[in-house]
Design a protein around this nucleic acid. Sequence first.
DNA 1: GTTGATTCTCACGTTACGTGATGTTTTATG
DNA 2: CATAAAACATCACGTAACGTGAGAATCAAC
Lengths: 251, 251
Amino acid sequence: MAEKYSIGTFVKLTGVTIRTLHYYDEISILKPELSSSGRRYYGDDHFIILQKIVTLKFLGFSLENIKDLIKIENWNLKESLIFQKKAMLEKRAQIDHIIKGLDSALNLVDEDQPVDSTIFISIINGILLEDDHKEWLENVLSKEKVQALFDIPQEEQFELEKRWALLLTELKNVCGSDPNGEESQLLMKEMFTLFTEIVGVETSAILQMNVPEDPSHVPLPFTMEEQEWLGKAMKFYLEKEGIEIDEGDLS
Amino acid sequence: MAEKYSIGTFVKLTGVTIRTLHYYDEISILKPELSSSGRRYYGDDHFIILQKIVTLKFLGFSLENIKDLIKIENWNLKESLIFQKKAMLEKRAQIDHIIKGLDSALNLVDEDQPVDSTIFISIINGILLEDDHKEWLENVLSKEKVQALFDIPQEEQFELEKRWALLLTELKNVCGSDPNGEESQLLMKEMFTLFTEIVGVETSAILQMNVPEDPSHVPLPFTMEEQEWLGKAMKFYLEKEGIEIDEGDLS
DNA sequence: GTTGATTCTCACGTTACGTGATGTTTTATG
DNA sequence: CATAAAACATCACGTAACGTGAGAATCAAC
């Protein structure tokens, strides 16, 4: 009953491709018998091994790994399985993170208002680098405040992101006009309102936080000229509000 | 203010490697200015493009895709984002499936009893091919029964898998002894009990189901000889139970 | 002028095969 | 038995996004 199958019939039995069997032969993970003319013949034992291979592959193991797993009869499988599971859980967390980013991105582009690409990228970056931001924020705020910041519901988060994007867009539009003009100053007010709303502390407090020096590359969606203009507008606004400000805060 | 950075300083600003910038230059996704001697110099505009690239890469897009996305100023981003999200959701489902398989695998190897590798593979395969099985089962059972089958809680599922593995192991052990011996027949009884318990119908009913011809390669964890022996043992058992059986049911 | 740091261009390695191109063996048919 | 058609064989290159040297050229500093 020990039938031997040619490679053609074997692939029909197993569902893998001929090339795959060639490859497995090449890397010595599944070596068939050879006829005198060099043709490959597979039997039931090969069938079993192949099942092991595809199953373990399905579980996420690499062929290199599988090679060891089926060679070493002494399956120390448990360890491998645990390791594998940890890796998969990490992968899933990673994907969840990406999906979250995609959701926020979709939320932004969903509006009728087209969003400037630099703003878009800046905001999405902010979301994706959330964890870094969190760590960074804990330098200047209490842990509870930071936690509260990240515990706000998704909807609200979306809302804030949208307002932030809109504000940045409008800022970019008025850039170049009078920094002390009515429009500009209205936007400044909205900006600090948003700041306060997001961070949950007063404007004056924000400016007095001693920001630790760090080169974590949070990209600003503004050109040099725009940043300069922004600096002027903020200065006017803060002066009117009667808030002291050190020189050289706006890089 | 339009500073130009050498590649060395640029990588320190951005965090990517030199090789990456070389590569991006090569595939024309981020082309810096060149000095007369051929050295690369990057400016703020390159910085912005690079931010876009890394962000979109984070969102799961391929460089080929990104190339189009930043070239075509007309961002039809929304479509791409939706597509991307769908892909990611699929990926996550896939990973969830794998994790489920790993859990079952861990549950099996967790026992003191070592499990024969063919049995192990067979069972894990059954779990991983769950969906196929479901479809297959709907050919012979009612939809509700099938649904009920897959709705049983995880713990119970684990329990059944364990019993099944144990049974198969013991069967393999007595293989070769008298198919009508006491031990063999006890195992037969447990086997049909398990069948009944799992599928939820009587043994006689199982054997009368007309199984559709399909080459869905469900691998049995038995060698040819073992299968032959199994056939005999089953025949004895069913005869004692007074159940009719057609010839040629056991392939 | 000489060293040391920086940067350049090949060019191969990675994973698990897909996809031809081209040559040989087996099988089927007249 | 001759010949055509399948089946099967072995190269060998392509994939995605870089990592990792090797060896040569350029730059900044002493």
